[in-house]
Simulated scan of single mutants.
Amino acid sequence: MKSHQSAQTMKPATAAKKLGVYLPATPAEFQEGVVSRAELNELQANPPEWLRELRQNGPHPRPVVASKLGVSIAGLARGGVTEALTTEQIEAVRSEMPEWLVKERATQAEVRKEAARLKRRDAERDAEEEQPAHS
């Protein structure tokens, strides 16, 4: 028996998210169509010029902006950054190093440190549970 697999498609917003690009900056034909899994794979494997340009220069979606600045998306919002930024704008924020960015980066560092501590604690607990009990 052959299994028939229909082509999976996704909305442009989903495809843009998976590609790490800001949907309003993509070409109209991308925004207005649907994207199949095969098309998404092809875009990832062989990005066209417009996709390379967007990934390099932006405007970038908030998750990418947050990552490039080393803060959370909520930290961006607290810092007043609600719009997509270009690579040049991100570099300008980095070079200005406003107080909110310093504070949010410190917050991110604490969050990462706590996550690492919890991961170590859980690993230690798991290791203890695997040890045979002594009678």
Rank of each mutant, 00 (worst) to 15 (best):
I90W: 01
I90Q: 00
E91K: 15
A92R: 13
A92M: 08
V93E: 03
V93F: 03
R94E: 07
R94T: 01
R94M: 11
R94I: 02
S95E: 12
S95G: 02
M97E: 08
M97G: 01
P98S: 09
P98L: 07
P98F: 08
E99H: 14
E99F: 13
W100H: 06
L101T: 04
L101S: 03
V102S: 10
V102H: 13
V102W: 10
K103N: 09
K103V: 06
E104D: 11
E104A: 05
E104L: 02
E104N: 09
E104T: 04
R105C: 00
R105E: 05
T107I: 04
T107G: 01
T107N: 06
T107D: 04
T107Y: 10
Q108A: 06
Q108H: 10
A109L: 08
A109P: 03
A109S: 14
E110L: 05
V111R: 11
V111C: 01
R112Y: 07
R112E: 10
R112Q: 11
R112A: 03
R112L: 02
R112G: 00
K113Q: 13
K113C: 00
E114F: 08
E114M: 05
E114P: 01
A115Y: 13
A115H: 12
A116I: 07
A116S: 15
R117L: 07
R117A: 07
R117G: 01
L118I: 09
K119C: 05
K119N: 12
K119A: 12
R120K: 10
R120W: 05
R120H: 06
R120Y: 06
R120F: 04
R121V: 08
D122V: 05
D122W: 14
D122G: 05
D122A: 14
A123M: 09
E124G: 03
E124S: 05
E124R: 12
R125M: 09
R125P: 00
D126A: 12
D126Y: 02
D126L: 07
D126Q: 14
A127F: 14
A127E: 14
A127V: 03
E128V: 03
E128P: 00
E128M: 08
E129R: 15
E129M: 06
